[in-house]
Structures are given as C-alpha cells and as structure tokens.
C-alpha cells in the first residue's frame, strides 16, 4: 500500500481539475500544450541531451510566470498542510517527527515566499483531507516520499516555462525538495537517490497525480 498511496488512488470530487478548468480556455489549452510538449522533451533530456529536438513552447513571460507560480503555490500549500497536520496529530516519533517538523517549516517558508512573489494574484489555500496519512507513521512516511519526489518532478518540469528570474528562485526551492525526498527515503531505507537523473513531470501529469489522491477538497 505505502508506495501506491501514490497520488493515483482516488479522485473523488475533482477539485483541482475543476479549478484548472475554470481558467480561461485559451490559457488552459496553451499551458497544457506547452506542458505536454515541454515536459516530454525535458524528461528525456537527462539521458539524451544531444539528439533532442527544440522544445515547442512559447516564450516565458509574466503571465505564464503567474500561472506556474500559482501551480507551485498549490503544491506547497499541500505539502505545508500535510506536515503541519502530521506534527499536530502527534502520531510521529523519533526522526520522522523531526523530519516533519523541519520540512514543515521549509514548506511554510516556500508558501510565504510564493505568496509574497505573487501578491494579489496568489491563489487561496485549498482545504485538505489527508485521509489518515498524517495520523499513522508508516502512512505518513510513504506519503511524504511520494509528495517530495513529486515536488521535485513538478519544479523540474516547469524550469523551461518560466522567466529566468523565476527560474533562479525555483532553483533555490527545488533542490531543497530533493533534499527532503532523499532524507525521508533514507529514513524508510529506500535509496535516497534512485537514479542518476531526476525525471521531470508536466503540469498535466502533476495535476492528475495530485487530483488522484483526493487530498485537495476544495
């Protein structure tokens, strides 16, 4: 079960999907197209840099930055709330408790940073239902592994879609997500660095995965 708590189990109310579909259709369509094209190419880039076709994406700009920063903010809201609830629930002990406390502080700092960067354009925090994963240490650990690995893949998938200024900020966050991922993996005796190249995921892939957890209620 643990590993397949993977963000692929449930999609009750489709809140994320709904929010995504509430966007103007042109924005949605172009994001999706860019995401799909860019993500596929970027994911492959780790192994075959040389033979890659050019990525067919639009030039990054302020409007696209806003969209992508809000996408990141939603993921950080989710992570922050997950750790905050896990610590508050008191079911964690030992290093897992320490991990949750420290990583929770980081994720809240990421939320604060992204909100400050977005200003009035920041999306509101959704409400969450972690379905018991914050109330049991083994479930917490398994979920944390998935969330952190997903965070890495999500940021890496957007690298080419943002302006350089946003990329610089994102680069300072993504490696911290990778440190979290390796840390919790080592705690649960999984390889901290399972591959020589981390995969990237498109926004559509991330949305589908997060949506499938049912963690976001609305």
């Amino acid at each position: 079960m643990p590993e397949h708590l993977t963000l692929e189990t449930v999609d009750h109310d489709g809140t994320v999907r709904q929010a995504y579909e509430d966007l103007p259709s042109s924005t949605r369509r172009s994001l999706l197209q860019r995401g799909l094209v860019a993500g596929g190419a970027v994911a492959a880039a780790g192994v075959t840099i040389g033979g890659l076709p050019k990525l067919a994406i639009g030039a990054p700009g302020p409007a696209q930055d806003t969209k992508i920063l809000n996408f990141a903010l939603t993921l950080e809201y989710l992570e922050a709330e997950f750790y905050t609830q896990a610590v508050a629930g008191g079911a964690l002990a030992g290093e897992s408790a320490e991990f949750a406390r420290i990583v929770g502080a980081h994720e809240r700092a990421h939320v604060a940073f992204l909100k400050s960067a977005l200003g009035a354009k920041a999306v509101a925090k959704p409400t969450f239902d972690f379905k018991g994963t914050t109330e049991n240490q083994a479930k917490f650990q398994a979920t944390a592994v998935v969330l952190e690995d997903t965070g890495v893949a999500a940021y890496n998938g957007q690298g080419a879609n943002v302006t350089k200024k946003v990329l610089a900020a994102a680069a300072s966050i993504v490696s911290v997500e990778a440190r979290h991922a390796a840390w919790i993996r080592d705690i649960v005796r999984k390889s901290p660095a399972p591959a020589a190249f981390d995969a990237a995921k498109t926004d559509a892939q991330i949305l589908a995965a997060v949506n499938a957890t049912g963690f976001i209620k609305g």
Partner: peptide
Amino acid sequence: APRIASNAVLGAALAIHTVEARHASWIRH
C-alpha cells in the same frame, strides 16, 4: 540554471541538479 539558453540543456541541468541535492542530503544524513 538561469544562465542557460537552450531548453534541452536546461532540462538536463535540472535533472542533474536535484540528484546532486539528493546526494548532499544523503551524505549529510
């Protein structure tokens, strides 16, 4: 990362960057 012009090169650099961070976290642990 912010100085890279090509998206293909950037994608490769990002894929390596986070693995270095995993290594750093691992040895620190």
